[in-house]
Simulated scan of single mutants.
Amino acid sequence: MVRSALALAALATTAVPGLDVVATRPPQATSSEYQTTGLLDAGGRSWVVRAPLTTAAGAALEGEVALLSQLVREVDEGRLPFDVARPVGFAELPEGGRAMVHRALVGRPLELEELTAGPGLSAALGRAIAAFHELDAAVIADAGLPVYDPDAYRKRRLAEVDEAARTGRVPAALLNRWEHALEDVKLWRFRPTPVHGDLAPEHVLVTDGRVSAMLGLTDAHVGDPAEDLAWLQASAPEESLDAIEEAYALARTESADETLMERALLVSELALARWLLHGVRTGEATVVEDATEMLHQLADEVTDAPEIGAREPAPGWAYEPDETDAAGQIDEPDEAVGDDPEADDPDAEQPDTEPDGDDAPVEPDSAGATEDLHLGTKLPDFLAEREDDSETR
């Protein structure tokens, strides 16, 4: 049920006793699964209320809430160098599910054009992703979210390719390329890690050249870390990739994964197959036709490209499968970004006014996705001209 911004504001006052809302403000976003509205209270503080629009979205939001309770501790204890949403209250919805209210997070959505060569935001982003991957897998498992070993993950992706093949719309060259990669044993010797699962520019907030927060954790799980790097390999400026990958590798404490970026390439290509399947499952003919066109364009792009996994791994990257503890911490984590302990109390005195510019709190809508359909911005950048059409996803 889609509600007006004022109706969501009313829900927020129910969820957080004493919250005196004086205005609605950005973000004002509605996706197929969530509705999000920003609020301003009488004390000048910014809030965000997010309500699920489907039963599946409601269940996913509950999983995210359980995870956030774990992640807040990781932030406060310095194991994550960025903040996450801190739920303050909930309002039951008549149709089922709950709306969640939290203080707006500091920062603005990442713009890929900001990623450049060398140290700076590119390296900060690599370290931030690595910090999430360094978390103990129990953080995810204890929240009741999925845990996949390499073979289970590989079989899920292979089943996805098989389903896409049955549509008759995927070029044979792509099917052969993907199946060869999925059957290449050396690609799948990775250690499962906590994975965000839906990283995209709107889910990464930045300020002062660093990552200040991560959003949209409804698809978090333990699985292939390549998922969280695929969107960058596909869409980030090419000159920024070395800085991102180097910072990421240096921030990981375990022996590195020599085929990580090869799998990331595969994940970015498979996003097109998922887009096709989304259109088939929902009966959206325009999506099916668009995905079909993009798949044929991708087939042309990779005609002369080496097979996935054929390139030599970066020097020094070697996985040691006999290690049992994948969890670790970066040696020198950045200072954690956390809210004031009194932030949960809307009546507590908070003299700071809203920051301007890069420091303004922003909470883009976390559109969410089904467990098997992580679309986000994982489409290759050569499809950027279709950006307007892709907003319907």
Rank of each mutant, 00 (worst) to 15 (best):
P355T: 07
Q329K: 12
A173H: 06
L298C: 06
E111R: 15
V267G: 01
G316C: 09
E163G: 06
V204C: 06
T303G: 09
H374G: 09
E74Q: 13
P87W: 00
A117D: 11
P306D: 07
T14W: 09
D300I: 10
D345E: 08
D257T: 01
A369S: 13
D151K: 15
L6C: 13
L40Y: 03
A117S: 14
G368H: 04
P94E: 11
V211I: 13
E113R: 15
V267T: 08
A181F: 00
T116G: 15
A138F: 12
L272M: 07
E387P: 02
P201S: 08
P380A: 10
Q28C: 14
G89M: 02
H278L: 13
A12I: 07
P361C: 00
W178M: 08
P192E: 03
P306R: 08
E238A: 15
E391P: 02
A141P: 04
V195N: 03
G96T: 06
D257V: 01
P26H: 03
L67D: 02
D224W: 02
A243F: 02
E92K: 11
E371D: 13
E246I: 12
L112K: 06
A42K: 11
D198Q: 10
H133S: 04
E312W: 10
L40Q: 05
K155G: 11
R156A: 12
S255G: 15
H296W: 09
S240W: 02
E332M: 11
V84M: 04
V49S: 06
G43D: 09
Y248V: 02
D149N: 13
A348L: 05
A251Y: 00
E111L: 15
A181P: 01
S69A: 14
A137H: 10
D322S: 14
G63I: 01
V16A: 04
T370D: 14
P361H: 01
P17H: 08
G223M: 02
